[in-house]
Simulated scan of single mutants.
Amino acid sequence: MFELFSSFPPDLLLFLAGVLFVAGCVRGFAGFGAGMIFMPVAASVMLPSTAAAAFLFIDGIVAMPLVFRALRQCDWPTVLPAVIGAVLFVHFGAWLLANADVLVLRWSIFAIVTGLLLLLISGWRYENKPTRPISFGVGAVAGVLGGISQVSGPPVVVFWLASAREPAIVRANLIVFFALASIGTFIAYILNGFFTLQVFHLLIMAIPVYALAIYAGSKGFSRSKPTLYRKLAYSLIALAAVTSMPALDPLFR
């Protein structure tokens, strides 16, 4: 049986399955955050491009039922401009990554994400109805951060949580946003040849594990209190801030 997974030792597969299950539960519950859990671990034991391509494929396939349900519930007037902003400005983030000092960029990301988290914890709320330009701007910031380091979630999470919308709407917005914004990433990964045989070996194990985890997380969300959703979102943003801090590289890389 393990010949199917010939690119990976059995003990590594079991370890990755455990990490992926936790990540999938979070994704099913919150609508985001799985990459923040899976990527730092997976990138430490395989090529980052292999880890990223495998996760993109897994999440794109398995999370599709979440997307279909969220399409009916999300707030399209704020989601679409944010998606457009992210798709356009992810290329600027990639350009910065290629041309700017990486250490400066990473400390800047840490400062931005931490600032957004502190703003949210302070109780600040965006009371007005979000306009299309504001939604576009938030998506653009998310795109730049995603192009630099794949940490695109915090700006849109803070934006929609601060709007005081109910967690079900926030979750639906995030699910649709990440699904649509990832289309450009799929194309870029195909053009760059990231979907290798090693990626597909990993998918054989990962797809059923991730599917079961997303189902469990979704069931948990349907039975949870709104306050629990907000606390988990805060924790995931904090995780993104901590794992992006250059000073902690010896622990995460």
Rank of each mutant, 00 (worst) to 15 (best):
S6E: 09
P10M: 15
F15N: 01
F21T: 01
V22I: 15
V26I: 13
V26H: 00
R27M: 04
G28V: 06
A30I: 05
G31K: 13
A34N: 08
A34K: 02
A43S: 15
V45M: 07
S49M: 08
S49N: 06
A51Q: 00
A52G: 11
F57S: 03
D59S: 15
A63H: 04
R72D: 05
W76F: 13
G85H: 06
V90L: 04
W95A: 11
L97K: 10
A100E: 09
I109Q: 01
F110R: 04
V113W: 06
L116D: 00
L119H: 13
L120Q: 03
I121L: 14
I121S: 11
R125M: 12
S135T: 04
L145R: 02
S152N: 15
G153R: 04
P154T: 12
V157M: 07
V157W: 02
A162N: 00
R171A: 07
V176H: 07
F177I: 09
A179V: 08
A181K: 04
A181T: 08
S182D: 11
G184A: 04
G184F: 08
G184C: 05
I187L: 14
A188M: 14
I190Q: 03
F194W: 09
H201G: 11
Y215K: 13
A216R: 09
K219V: 06
F221D: 01
K225N: 14
K225Q: 14
Y229D: 00
I237Q: 02
L239K: 07
A247R: 14
R253D: 00
